[in-house]
Amino acid sequence: MASRNTYDEAQVIEQLRDPAAARTAFGKVIEHYSSTLYWHIRRMVFNHDDANDVLQNTFIKAWTSIDHFRGDARLSTWLYKIAINESITFINKQKAQNNISIDDDDSFLVNQLESDEFFDGDAAQLKLQRAIATLPEKQRVVFNLRYYDEMKYEDMSEVLGTSVGALKASYHHALKKIEAFLQEND
């Protein structure tokens, strides 16, 4: 926690541009963002081991393409973008391996959640995850960013490159679908 308090993003970005200091600076980035990104990825892929792999891929991709990071954007925005892309890529690979159409929802990911040793939710929590998994991926991203991460629509707009209005509409539709699912499966 002490390191979180001393995290100075502007300074870290400057150090990332210096080849001699970049590695140490990236260590600070990992320390600062690993938890936030992990939970976002975990809510996308559900399983802990998969979330761990996607988080690793996210940081490796960020590290190898750090030269493409524009200083005018926020590091968190850039890392979220990578994490979301990596999560969706992972889910699509899983669908291909399981002969599931790319257009189908991600319910298959929740099927093993009950037996997952790193899930201790009750029946209601499991049902909510099942409901969330029925959403299209992009709507699921919007729902998770708003509902769990409590991200502002303006920040979400930067991450997803979508207008605030469209994001609000997407979140509203997601809520309606989840509520409908919960009522149907009551």
Binding site: S34, R42, F119, G121, Q125, L128, Q129
Partner: peptide, 17 residues
């Protein structure tokens, strides 16, 4: 709105992060 709280029920191994 959903009324189920915001804890998804996920956990991680000890000292994971």
């Amino acid at each position: 709105m959903i009324g189920l709280g915001k804890d998804p029920g996920f956990k991680v191994p000890e000292n994971y992060f």
